[in-house]
Design a protein around this nucleic acid. Structure first.
Length: 948
DNA sequence: GAGTTTGAAACT
DNA sequence: CAGTTTCAAACTC
């Protein structure tokens, strides 16, 4: 933890080369915040005073090189560190001033240093994530407290000054930085905003936001934060920029952090250890992010080197490109370059930058960036996917969850859980889609990140439609991009709140716009005693910030109190992981076994209602309020729910279970599939139309072409073994997937999807082939249930509970892996995808061949699964989740046990789930809308048949 | 708009 | 886990 200094020493000593030495020294200094280097730097350059701090910071980043020399690890990291260096310059300019100030302002004592170290570590971890995925950016922010950010920034700055690599950028930044430093912290911030244009402003904004979120953020961070809003407000889009760009900044920060981290680690083994320790010690918010990051880092380490380079290159290039693009380009570069790795290591920013910029096609700064980046990321991810192993590199997604803590990260990750809730409750269709994406990203890490990215890219357009200010923590914003766009569009709202802009996490609940679907969008709460920090508050429960329309008193559910909100969320989630999960889930049980029967309301309330006097005919009843029928989970008395009585539901379940048993014995698999598909389509259409619950983003809808969306939902529903499965969630995921398809990403996905489908088919075959179909199903169902349990989600919740995510994220990741495969087995259509879910290429022993290939697609599935799990979990089946998956995504848990239990319990739902699974398979073709290309679905189907 | 009813959330 | 309390929305007037 405290080792930073030692590391610095080592680094300095090691840094024999002049450039390396300069860089290294700063880096070392930056962590420690010691001024020797800064002084030295100041002396060297006229900018000195300003740069000195920057240099220090930058050097921190630079230190990595020296560090490299010092520590054996460094070698591995070196490349990354170098890349990071290049990257650092970009960020540094912005952060450096803050960092320096913050460091100085903050107690100079060792404690501060430790903090910084911790932060740095967190940043490093975050960086690793970055390398793997876009998510990293998000993670970084969330994970790293403001202090961390500052340090990182400082490092970057130093790097800029020190490194010649990113000359142009550095020059720009350095100038800005210098000015800032001179002006003073607050002034510097202001100036930064001005200077930064987009990127710089973003950086500052991000930092301040992050800082404010944390309790003890550096004074600088606070000052910046305070100042920023005003400036932002002044600038029309300040809020927007912050929010939108926040993602970029996050990415940048994350990158920087990553670079610093790597360097840092490389230089000091101790630092690494300390870093880990620090991570553990970090504030809860940070911890989750860090944890996630760490995990991802581990996975991504292989790729880390390449990625960092890419990042660095991108960053270097970014300066040249528009600032907005920078963030995006970085991400994109990371992904894109990650594969190429070789491309640039560090110094040749221009070339890479050019490439990046070229690749990008920014329509508008924010949007274009977001979109472009998303696309790029996607492409990168896909390229990775091609390898099948990609998921790991992509890893960064997790951080988003954690992001709840850090504004940036929060925005992305948190989105999921909250989104789900919000979506279910009131979010517009578009939101739902986003939610799904977010969820996936947040919890599923790499896969999620990819998907999220893809989604974000895809949805970015749709995001415009997304007015909701979803709490970041819960939902991991699929991608910063989406946020960006969203923010830009909704900046006004943000401005109102003042804060907000940067924080992506929760988006303030737009007055009514959100409710586009419902009309309400966000309910206006009227909390008086809970400060809108309890589930009593609809806004809080939905993962959104309270907005003007709210009549709440003493409201803390506002961006200004993001930290408080996140903490509270975590607490609530700790008590009930599903607290923020969507309440409405679709029941598999209702699936039309007969084929003709469509349960208009397949959706059900997770926990069910407990009405005694309202007979479920008033809005007191949550089921009624959600326009869903009561289910066996309800404890209502005298249920007369017009959407479906509890009694009827129970009967259905029984019938379904009976039929399933029958079908198994009698019907041919294909026939079933056909019938099922037909039914499903119908159901989907109904559900989709009837339900407000699953708001699709327009974009998604478009992609789906209407039909597809419903189908996809249906499939998912089928996939869900348990009656409780959330169609809505699934649908959202599918939508996201679809959106992805639209994007460039589609091609990649299609290929992968095909493979995945094949795999899924194989998996299904396996299942079917297996003598005990039921067992398999049950097991799968179990796995799904496990997933549910595992990933309560945050997706939603996770999304909602990004903060809690730390724990959740870990297990969720594992669960995902398992789930994917299992899920695949369960539900044919969705299952295929899930199965294929790359995450667990292997998870399923089913022996699917190319799980890896599938994995890429599976990621999406995973995401979906992740979402579904939450729902599922919540939903009826409290199946005990068996921790299953290992980080590697292999299935650890034995589904059988569960399956066994399920059998024994033999709830109709389970049975129905099985049927669904079979059905789902056939439905794939229709589902195609989902991420997977239609062709892929067809192939899957064919494959499946063949296998049969 | 005030008061009552209701059921979920929170607490014990 | 069950019972009680608290809370805010839904509802009524």
């Amino acid at each position: 933890m405290d080792s930073p200094e030692p590391t610095a020493k080592t680094t300095t000593a090691a840094s024999a080369s002049a450039s390396a030495a300069t860089l290294a020294t700063p880096s070392s200094a930056s962590p420690v915040q010691e001024s020797p280097f800064s002084n030295f730097l100041s002396n060297l350059s006229p900018i000195g005073p300003v740069k000195a701090p920057h240099v220090l910071q930058g050097f921190l980043g630079l230190n990595s090189p020296p560090l490299v020399f010092t520590s054996p690890r460094i070698n591995a990291l070196r490349e990354t560190s170098f890349f990071k260096r290049s990257l650092c310059p970009q960020l540094p300019s912005v952060e450096v001033p803050q960092h320096d100030d913050g460091a100085r302002k903050s107690a100079d004592g060792p404690g501060d240093l430790e903090k910084s170290d911790l932060l740095l570590h967190g940043g490093l971890t975050a960086i690793t994530h970055k390398d793997s995925d876009i998510k990293y950016s998000v993670q970084v922010q969330p994970s790293s407290p403001a202090g961390c950010v500052d340090e990182y920034l400082a490092d970057h700055v130093e790097v800029d000054g020190a490194n010649s690599t990113s000359v142009a950028q550095n020059s720009k930044q350095s100038s800005n930085v210098v000015q800032l430093s001179q002006s003073g912290i607050s002034d510097s911030k202001k100036t930064i905003l001005k200077f930064d244009d987009q990127t710089y402003m973003k950086m500052k904004v991000v930092v301040p936001e992050a800082m404010p979120g944390e309790t003890e953020q550096n004074i600088q961070g606070k000052t910046t934060f305070d100042c920023e809003p005003n400036k932002i407000k002044d600038e029309k889009t300040c809020g927007e920029w912050t929010s939108n760009e926040g993602s970029n900044i996050e990415s940048n920060l994350s990158l920087d952090h990553a670079s610093s981290k790597q360097q840092y680690e490389g230089s000091n083994a101790q630092n690494d250890a300390s870093a880990h320790g620090d991570e553990s010690n970090w504030p809860p918010q940070l911890l989750p992010g860090q944890l996630q990051i760490v995990q991802t880092y581990e996975h991504s380490e292989e790729n880390a080197g390449a990625i960092p380079r890419a990042l660095v290159d991108s960053t270097t290039n970014d300066p040249e490109a528009s600032q907005n693009q920078r963030g995006m380009s970085r991400r994109c570069l990371q992904f894109e370059e990650a594969q190429p790795k070789a491309i640039v290591k560090s110094t040749n920013p221009s070339d890479q930058a050019n490439d990046v910029t070229d690749s990008r096609s920014p329509a508008t700064p924010t949007e274009s960036e977001s979109l472009d980046s998303s696309y790029l990321d996607l492409s990168a991810t896909f390229s990775k996917r091609q390898l099948v192993n990609l998921p790991q590199p992509v890893t960064p997604l997790f951080p988003p969850r954690h992001t709840g803590k850090s504004p940036l990260t929060n925005s992305k990750p948190s989105g999921i859980g909250l989104h789900l809730n919000s979506i279910v409750n009131a979010l517009p269709k578009g939101h739902a889609a986003t939610v799904g994406v977010k969820l996936t990203t947040a919890e599923y890490g790499m896969l999620e990140t990819k998907t999220s990215i893809a989604v974000s890219s895809m949805t970015s357009e749709s995001f415009d439609n997304m007015p909701l200010h979803i709490l970041p923590p819960i939902e991991h914003h699929a991608t910063p991009h989406a946020k960006r766009k969203y923010n830009s569009e909704h900046t006004d709202s943000f401005e109102e709140f003042n804060q907000t802009s940067p924080k992506k996490k929760r988006q303030v609940c737009m007055k009514k716009p959100l409710g586009t679907i419902d009309g309400e969008g966000c309910k206006r709460c009227n909390c008086k005693k809970t400060k809108c920090l309890k589930l009593y508050c609809d806004c809080f429960a939905a993962g959104i910030y309270c907005a003007e329309p709210c009549a709440c008193q003493g409201c803390f559910n506002r961006p200004e109190y993001e930290d408080t909100v996140l903490e509270t969320r975590q607490q609530i989630e700790s008590r009930n992981p599903l607290a923020f999960a969507p309440k409405i889930v679709q029941h598999a049980t209702e699936f039309p076994d007969d084929g003709n029967r469509m349960t208009p309301a397949s959706a059900r309330h997770k926990r069910g209602c407990n009405c005694k006097k309202s007979m479920c005919l008033k809005k007191y009843c949550e089921c009624y309020q959600a326009n869903v029928g009561c289910s066996s989970g309800c404890r209502c008395e005298g249920c007369k729910n017009v959407y479906g009585r509890k009694e009827d539901y129970v009967e259905n379940e029984e019938m379904v279970s009976n039929r399933l048993s029958k079908d198994r014995s009698e019907g041919t698999f294909e026939d079933r599939l056909e019938t099922i598909t037909n039914k499903n389509d119908f159901l989907h259409s109904e559900l989709y139309d009837s339900r407000n619950l699953t708001p699709l983003t327009p974009s998604f809808d478009c992609s789906d072409h209407g039909k597809d969306a419903p189908k996809s939902r249906i499939l998912f529903g089928r996939c869900i073994p348990s009656p409780e499965s959330d169609l809505t969630i699934l649908s959202s995921y599918t939508r996201t997937l679809r959106s992805l398809e639209k994007s460039d990403f589609n091609d990649m996905l299609l290929e992968t999807s095909k493979e995945v489908l094949d795999v899924g088919a194989c998996g299904q075959r396996m299942d079917y082939n297996s003598t005990d179909m039921t067992d398999q199903f049950s097991s799968r169902c179990d796995t799904l249930a496990d997933f549910r349990n595992l990933t309560p989600l945050d997706f939603p919740s996770t999304a909602m509970a990004p903060s809690t995510s730390c724990k959740v994220s870990d297990w969720t990741n594992a669960s995902r892996l398992q789930l994917c495969p299992k899920s695949g087995s369960l539900s044919s259509g969705s299952s295929l995808r899930w199965r294929s879910s790359p995450i667990t290429p292997l998870t399923q022993s089913d022996g699917t061949k190319n799980h890896q290939e599938l994995d890429s697609d599976n990621r999406l599935c995973d995401i979906l699964e992740a979402d579904t799990p939450d729902i599922l979990k919540d939903a009826s089946t409290p199946i005990k989740s068996v921790k299953v998956s290992s980080p590697s995504r292999k299935r650890v848990s034995p589904p059988h046990t569960r399956g066994h239990e399920l059998r024994s319990s033999s709830s109709g739902a389970l049975k129905s789930g099985r049927k669904f699974i079979l059905k789902a398979v056939p439905s794939f073709p229709p589902l195609t809308p989902c991420i997977d290309s239609k062709g892929s679905t067809n192939q899957n189907k064919s494959d499946f048949q063949e296998k049969k």
